[in-house]
Design a protein around this nucleic acid. Sequence first.
DNA 1: AGCTTGCAGCGTCAGAGCTT
DNA 2: AAGCTCTGACGCTGCAAGCT
Length: 113
Amino acid sequence: MQKPIMAVTGDETAATGDMPTYQIRAPTTALPQGVVMAASPGSLHSPQQLAEEATRKRELRLMKNREAAKECRRRKKEYVKCLESRVAVLEVQNKKLIEELETLKDICSPKTD
DNA sequence: AGCTTGCAGCGTCAGAGCTT
DNA sequence: AAGCTCTGACGCTGCAAGCT
């Protein structure tokens, strides 16, 4: 199955200048509980053992990716929340500026009677 | 009660980009 | 170059709300 190519990183910092970085690459050394490290490849012999090793590697990769996806979604949610609260703040600020502008217009406009 | 629809969350895959 | 992490996309599932 072919997927569309995209290269979005989610890092909006360049555009906004002051938003927190969405994608934070931290070293993830901790393994989920119950994960046992593999024996070195040199210690494998039979096709049976090789197949088991491949299966084990795949399960480990899936498990890690599962956790990574959860963490990614958590960060994204946080990021969206942050954006939403920023929108709220900017809306209030915008409203105030418009009001201020109207007040200044009133003050500066020539009286007609 | 049964059906439909919309939403949220999950697991997986694929691909980009970083690290070793 | 190989291995790893991160994340968009996709498909699936469960739940709640609205409709018949």
